[in-house]
Design a binder for these strands. Structure first.
Lengths: 240, 240
DNA sequence: CGGGCACTTGATAGTAATCAAGTCCGGTGG
DNA sequence: CCACCGGACTTGATTACTATCAAGTGCCCG
């Protein structure tokens, strides 16, 4: 494959679309056609990609970086609903139906996006029914996570909620470390609080508690070393 | 259409499948083929249709009655995730992927179900890609609701959560009444509590409060007359 | 009409939000 | 490379609220 088929900065001579699971059933020729449809766009940390209440006219696929999807309440409080990273897509719901977005999406760091225009996406969906099945799978995964979140928020102690988030981050962002798993936190304390419906002070206190118990070790503000995973799992299961 | 095409007790000479939105794109002939695949089954109040952690081998469509989908926590607490009524389906997630069920489903009253066997369902899905789109729409609606639930549980006062449920029930089960909207509650106080992560006592207290404020009027244990909808909407928006 | 269960209401205790200082981290500029 | 500055984080004290425990009341079904 010596031919240039995708000229985005981050994937020279590769089909970046191939890395996206929703296109995994397509062959190279089909992927090349899709690659032609893709527009690349970069966002700086803090920039908004999608605005709550406004219409969306493209499917967003993350090539590099990460974003949060959230809603603002009247009194300025924020509820984070999803964290998206490399390979994840969003905006699909506004394209499938013709509705405005339920949430805003903000870049948590420098983020590169592949955009597919609404119309092209709808044609793709018709031409390749397999894509619909892949999207359905991803929607099911999101339902799974939200169901877990509702259960956690509804029936678990506050310490269990904090433990659950740390476990989620360990699985998603954790890297092996001589003494356990090193987690690079994608969110600030306030971000974590807004993800699980608590205040930043409470998150702070509960994390300090977990550190005192020898379960985790905080390394600066953005790094957590998970020392005892099974203890964290036990804590996450604790009902209120 | 004098020919007998569906012999279930509750829909003589009708295509009950036609009433289901996921089959709405099909014509009569196709519906007749589906009607042949359907098995009818009845459940009594309190009976379990699906067991959390066990595999599911059919798609369940409610012909009559209603059910709740819920999870049990270790300490016996319960989190209700969905309420399903006439025309709703469930079990689809275990069929799309090959996984055990995330939740149990229990009949809240005498309930009649149309069952489509896993294999038949998968064939249908391949033959009629439109069905996948319809299912996707429904999955999106469930995501919408769960996102709202997470936001409500994460950022709203307890009174707002109770108000939200009452509004949801008013829209879903409410009937016009000279003095407002009469709501036949699908759940007991404890059920409502398990739906929004509170205790039955708190639900009781907050409903009494709403009654004192003249927003609702309780009529026995299962009926609520909504007197002032806009007041309830204001209460539901109140952040904690 | 009677009995059981769901619901209501009250008192108390526990816990997280809030308000308020401090401290630390990390980035910036000298 | 170090010192400094601002924002994020931690910790403490207090308040507010809901869970819990407990006792009555009333609805609904047989």
């Amino acid at each position: 494959m010596g031919k240039m088929i995708c000229n985005c900065d981050s994937c020279h001579n590769k089909l970046c679309a191939r890395q996206i699971s929703i296109f995994s059933s397509l062959d190279d020729q089909q992927l090349m056609r899709i690659a032609d449809l893709i527009i690349h766009k970069g966002y700086k940390k803090g920039e908004l990609l999608i605005f709550e209440g406004e219409s969306v006219n493209s499917l967003f696929i993350i090539n590099k970086g990460q974003t949060k999807a959230f809603r603002n309440t009247q009194d300025g409080r924020e509820q984070i609903l999803y964290l998206f990273s490399e390979g994840d897509f969003f905006g699909e719901r506004s394209l499938l139906r013709d509705e405005v977005s339920n949430y805003s999406v903000e870049a948590l760091e420098e983020t590169h996006i592949c955009l597919i225009h609404k119309h092209d996406f709808q044609v793709l969906l018709k031409e390749h029914p397999d894509i619909a099945l892949k999207i359905m799978e991803e929607l099911c995964r999101r339902l799974d996570r939200l169901e877990n979140t509702v259960e956690t928020m509804g029936t678990r102690t506050v310490e269990a909620r904090v433990s659950s988030v740390l476990l989620e981050f360990a699985d998603k962002y954790g890297k092996p470390h001589p003494r356990g798993i090193m987690i690079e936190l994608p969110l600030s304390r306030e971000g974590i609080a807004n993800y699980i419906g608590l205040t930043r002070e409470t998150v702070s206190r509960k994390m300090s508690l977990l550190q005192d118990e020898g379960v985790i070790e905080m390394n600066g503000n953005k790094k957590v070393l998970l020392l005892d995973r099974s203890a964290l799992e036990r804590a996450a299961d604790r009902a209120s």
